[in-house]
Design a protein around this nucleic acid. Structure first.
Length: 467
RNA sequence: GGCGGGUUGGCGGAGAGGUUACGCAGCGGAUUGCAAAUCCGUGUAGACCGGUUCGAUUCCGGUACCCGCCUCCA
């Protein structure tokens, strides 16, 4: 069996990956808050952990991996968006607006991530379906002395968990010194964080021992991971910006709810996506969505290849040049594997690169090697391990061409050029080729005759005016 | 201020204490009526200063610069 090594953020070392149960490898990844389209930065962890999911399925068997990715569908940003919609004239009850908003956003998310070739996780729980579990976990924390109720809130007593700060490498004293923690009169200590808070009438709320309210952000992941994966599981993933405070708080909640269980064994964090050298984020307003790119005609497969071109633990810049290179590469590879039956298993070099802390860039280099060797079957099988060259994702290569009409026109023009060449009328032959090329059609004279295909910049209009 | 990460050839981007990363571009050649495509060949780069070592871009220390987190964020 292939030995997988993964960098564990919790130990800051690359470690051999040994699943708790090889027959059920378990992974939890923090999913989106569903109030808006996913931007490209959101797509990075999706593609990264999808690739890990594929690797785990390959090594341990497709039926022996459980991948959970949540939808956060209760959140202040969602409430705020619903309030905007109400203010804009939506007369429905706010809960109905929210339900539709979150349902719609989840639909968008699925469509956009599907386009990137991401497999659906095994389970995609909605936070609102697990509120009972959250309440139960909070009750347990209160009973064990790790949480306290105050003014309708329930707060986690951070001082009761000595290991707090270990994941992100910071101490409580440092945080106090930073003095940027939220102070509230009902907190025993400024670093304590909210597990449960009151909800106003007209906003989503659930009955609880502390009155009608809603959960804090962090508790949902602890509760859903426990419900779906158990108190101890193998991998927990997410963006590095979640390491503190979100993941730190998750650990505190889960470790105190289940002392000794261990919670997640390996923590993995992907680095940020940059635009113009700065992190892409909604708060900075410098984002564009996956849908924007798809609508501009950038195939999801191309986006995926660009995202996989940089190691997940390094920041990556989205650039037009890399998009163009990725598209050219995929066109070449797609041409190579067309009609070829994939090999029974991926190439060892590709598998080895991925197994080494998900070195996708190294795996892509190995794919180039297979292409150079002309091993189309190996390329096809290996690329699929990265979610590339999948049969269902190649339509873009041929997209935009109207098969019959365009082909007939191109053939007619090329026949004219061939005739000119036969007559050694080089001027006319070259003029025709130049005009056809300018329309975005790639023309190749080969010993077997003239070949052509539509390039990425094909413009039918230019072709039609040649005659 | 505290914590974490980074700095590789024209560009992008990996691994490894001593042997070619890889891709794109460039250059030379084959081929071609001319091209394109393809094929072959081609680049001693590793922010700076020290240290360890027979040998470091790779390990250690320092300096500079960049980025992220510390507030919602993938």
């Amino acid at each position: 069996m292939t030995a997988i090594r993964l960098y564990n953020s919790a130990t800051r070392r690359k470690e051999d990956f040994v699943p708790l149960d090889p027959l059920n490898v378990r992974m939890y990844v923090c999913g989106p808050t569903v109030y808006d389209r996913a931007h490209l930065g959101n797509a990075r962890p999706v593609v990264v952990f999808d690739t890990l999911f594929r690797l785990l399925r390959h090594v341990h068997g497709a039926g022996h991996v459980t991948y959970v990715r949540n939808f956060t569908d209760v959140d202040d940003k969602i409430n705020a968006r619903a309030a905007e919609m109400a203010a804009a004239g939506d007369a429905r009850p706010v809960n109905d607006i929210i339900r539709e908003l979150t349902d719609t956003t989840i639909g968008w998310y699925h469509a956009d991530m599907d386009a990137l070739g991401a497999l659906r996780p095994t389970v995609e729980p909605r936070a609102t379906a697990h509120v009972a579990g959250m309440i139960a976990m909070i009750e347990g924390l209160v009973a064990r002395g790790h949480a306290y109720a105050a003014a309708g809130h329930v707060l986690f007593d951070v001082r009761s968990f000595p290991a707090y700060g270990r994941l992100s490498g910071r101490s409580l004293d440092e945080m106090i010194a930073g003095a940027r923690v939220e102070v509230a009169p009902y907190k025993r200590d400024p670093v304590d964080f909210v597990l449960w808070k009151p909800s106003e009438p007209g906003l989503p709320g659930w009955d609880s021992p502390w009155g009608r309210g809603r959960p804090g952000w962090h508790i949902e992941c602890s509760a859903m991971a426990e419900a779906l994966l158990g108190p101890a599981f193998d991998i927990h993933g997410g963006g590095i910006d979640l390491m503190f405070p979100h993941h730190e708080n998750e650990i505190a909640q889960s470790a105190c709810a289940h002392p000794g269980a261990g919670f997640a064994r390996v923590w993995m964090h992907n680095e940020m996506l940059l635009v113009e050298g700065r992190k892409m984020s909604k708060s900075l307003g410098n984002f564009f969505t996956v849908r924007d790119l798809l609508d501009r005609g950038v195939p999801g497969e191309v986006i995926r290849l660009v995202l996989l071109g940089t190691h997940y633990r390094s920041p990556m810049d989205w650039t037009e040049e890399r998009r163009a290179q990725a598209e050219a590469t995929l066109r070449r590879w797609r041409g190579l594997v067309a009609g070829i039956e994939p090999a029974p298993s991926p190439a060892p070099a590709v598998l080895a690169a991925l197994a080494d802390d998900l070195n996708a860039a190294g795996a892509i280099a190995a794919l180039h090697g297979l292409a150079t060797e002309g091993d189309a079957a190996g390329l096809a099988a290996s690329a699929r391990l990265l979610g590339l060259l999948e049969p269902g994702m190649g339509a873009w290569v041929a997209a935009g061409r109207d098969p019959a009409a365009v082909a007939a026109l191109v053939e007619r023009l090329l026949a004219a050029r061939t005739a000119a060449r036969a007559a050694k009328d080089w001027a006319r032959a070259d003029w025709l080729r130049q005009a056809i090329t300018a329309a975005g059609v790639v023309v190749r004279d080969t010993p077997a005759g003239v070949e052509w295909e539509l390039g990425p910049a094909f413009e039918p209009a230019k072709l039609e005016v040649i005659e």
